[in-house]
């Protein structure tokens, strides 16, 4: 099977694979991770607020998202969002959203559920005494969260947040179901076009492997750097 392994197929398609595919993958990962962590933190704060009207919807949201397959959510949003847009704006036709926007919204909302569980654990990892100390100084809830609790929660959870981001990086390949082309999709297209499935899929696997292993190593290094001195 490897006797006619053709390296030139890979070399020739590099500009397309990275210039189009990888740029898409990285862009979607970065935007969805950022949005997901921000939204996830808000959801975590809702769950821990002690106010039922905030905590219960947040809990339902998280459990709902976590029980659905990502592919389903991607599909669902892609077909549904235009109709929700139509309903909200009162337009006569479904609102055209665009596949990228749809994917970005989907990944952000989906990942937010997972990031919120990480941030919830992070917030709970900060001792109650820290909140008391911040309150005793006169800080209000928002200031206590922003300057005392979240910075510590975030530092404690950096490894898990980045690990989840690596999972997100791999999951972005699912956008092929709404005809978007990420790195995996680009490799797949070349493979089909040139009939070079072995070369392209091996190459794609190697690239994912290198990127994820490198990222894991960086996570460990970063963890040591941001760790709170105890």
């Amino acid at each position: 099977m490897f006797s006619d392994f053709d390296l030139n197929v890979i070399l020739g398609s590099l500009p397309y694979l990275f210039g189009t595919g990888m740029v898409f993958t990285v862009t979607l990962t970065a935007l969805a991770a950022t949005g997901g962590i921000i939204l996830g933190t808000l959801i975590a704060m809702m769950r821990l607020s002690g106010i039922a009207a905030l905590a219960i919807p947040a809990k339902i949201y998280v459990n709902f998202m976590r029980s659905l397959p990502l592919v389903l959510v991607i599909f669902w949003f892609y077909f549904l969002v235009p109709y929700i847009g139509q309903w909200m704006t009162g337009a006569s036709r479904p609102i055209s959203v665009g596949a990228f926007t749809s994917a970005l919204v989907t990944f952000t909302l989906f990942e937010a559920a997972f990031f919120s569980e990480i941030m919830r654990a992070g917030i709970q990892s900060v001792s109650k005494g820290q909140t008391s100390a911040a309150q005793a100084l006169g800080l209000n809830y928002r200031q206590t969260m922003a300057t005392v609790i979240l910075p510590q929660a975030f530092r404690n959870m950096v490894p898990l947040l980045l690990t989840q981001t690596i999972v997100l990086f791999q999951d972005t390949s699912l956008v092929y179901v709404i005809s978007l082309t990420d790195f995996m999709g680009a490799a797949s297209k070349v493979a089909q076009r040139d009939g070079r499935l072995v070369e392209m899929y091996i190459f794609a696997a190697v690239v994912y492997l290198i990127i994820c292993l490198t990222a894991s190593t960086l996570v460990r290094r970063l963890q040591r750097r941001v760790a709170i001195i105890r």
């Binding site: 005494g129 209000n140 105890r230």
Partner: peptide, 19 residues
């Protein structure tokens, strides 16, 4: 918050902000 800011408090476990 304003009232608390006028009342200094020292805790058993210090509770300095470690970060």
């Amino acid at each position: 918050p304003k009232l608390r800011s006028r009342v200094g408090m020292v805790f058993q476990h210090f509770e300095l902000f470690p970060h």
